[in-house]
Design a protein around this nucleic acid. Structure first.
Lengths: 227, 227
DNA sequence: CGGGTTGTTGACAGCGTTCAACCGCGGTGG
DNA sequence: CCACCGCGGTTGAACGCTGTCAACAACCCG
């Protein structure tokens, strides 16, 4: 992690808007700001590895961080994808814990880092921080449950449809938007090989979905729901 | 939920040994005991349904509770299985949350229930409770990550092997033990159709695994690791 | 213009779901 | 006491999906 430094005005603002600190009282925010350290991470660099003793809590300021597990033969399975405002490693707040997976920058990223011991220290005196952590981890657990059920119940085109619908306005009108990251990253997030994602997209062309580069156009959201 | 009542001596003891309350200070334990209500749940009955407003936290005293999600066509996917000592619904401690999945008794079960508002109330004054909740949810998140990666990386026989090894003593000696629940339940937990579990077991016979009813005999744990 | 990265397409095989038939067991009731 | 039924589990056959490997196209950036 390069360029370690205290948060400047820009970083402080990003942090404040980032969901994590948003639900805290002013004093807890101040305490967390006090111990925050900003760092940048070049693309493809590891933030931590599965099994290492966990000593840091991370909050993404910009970029994306991929969390994955390795199997003995070196194959990877993405387990989570964190973007701006997301908190990484809240799953290891417990004493003496170890990271449950490997974290790698999917693109150049800016992070805020917090020493875990000091976080625990603050949390043990400030219940609003502890409760905020519960809420964040809870939400991540719910997301994980959803992925698990999705994997087991839906085919690749169905999962892609769901993803697209989640990124549409709810009004049922045609829309366009940009994918926030590379397709190979999206594939991993959805538990697919990149080829499978590609095939899913081409199948969805028959259902009013057009993709060129990162640009997606949804012709008929209602039709997508029926895939 | 039948037979609502205050916890008796037996239930209090089970609760105390149950991991959830174990890490709390005496005062927090007392506060939680104060609001605990014991109830029994007959087999196959729902504890709560996906989407319902969450108002209760549950701790399993005996029996097993299956947590699953439904898809539009009514197919089910298990996302978690809770046994004695496990805490259910910690993923919804947040205000105004809704249950993320449906919970159903896999067999007759005994539960302790806690009113969520009062839990939040206590937690906002007692950081040890809030931190205990973070730890529990974190552990559940780690488990969920593991399932997710396992599903994507390993075949049915491999997942079954892993499950069996997790329930063996680490010493590498041959062992026997009883499955704690029905095979169909285990299949769901591993993300398999019951038939697939059956086939996995019969394949594992060639690797020193013998199953009769709920009784499992592992001839050579080392060989299992290489499946 | 050239090289590397990223995405697409095709062929193929492996795995797991699904459907259906069958077995073994325990319980019930004649 | 035995026949029957129902349930959990097993086995077989067929289909469909997705991972894998390989070749190729498109693109970005120098």
């Amino acid at each position: 992690m390069n360029r370690l430094m205290k948060p400047g005005a820009r970083e402080r603002e990003t942090l404040l808007n980032s969901g994590f600190l948003a639900s805290l009282g002013v004093e807890s925010v101040a305490a967390m700001m006090e111990i925050a350290v900003i760092g940048s991470l070049p693309a493809r660099q590891m933030l931590f590895r599965e099994g290492e003793p966990a000593d840091m809590l991370h909050c993404v300021l910009s970029g994306y961080i991929r969390l994955y597990k390795l199997d003995p033969d070196g194959r990877e399975a993405d387990v989570s994808l964190y973007g701006p405002g997301d908190l990484i490693g809240a799953s290891v707040v417990l004493d003496g814990g170890r990271y449950a997976a490997t974290a790698q920058a999917a693109e150049p990223a800016l992070l805020a880092r917090f020493d875990l011991r000091r976080v625990r220290d603050i949390a043990s005196r400030r219940p609003d921080l502890a409760l905020a952590l519960v809420n964040i981890v809870s939400a991540q657990l719910a997301t994980s449950f959803t992925s698990l059920a999705d994997d087991r119940l839906h085919t690749a085109p169905q999962r892609v449809s769901r993803y697209l619908l989640d990124h549409c306005p709810a009004d049922g009108k045609a829309t366009s938007f940009r994918l926030p990251y590379q397709k190979s990253l999206l594939a991993g997030k959805l538990g697919l090989a990149p080829e499978a994602l590609s095939r899913a997209f081409s199948l969805l062309r028959n259902h009013g979905v057009n993709v060129r580069g990162r640009l997606v156009h949804i012709g008929d959201p209602e039709a997508l729901k029926r895939v």
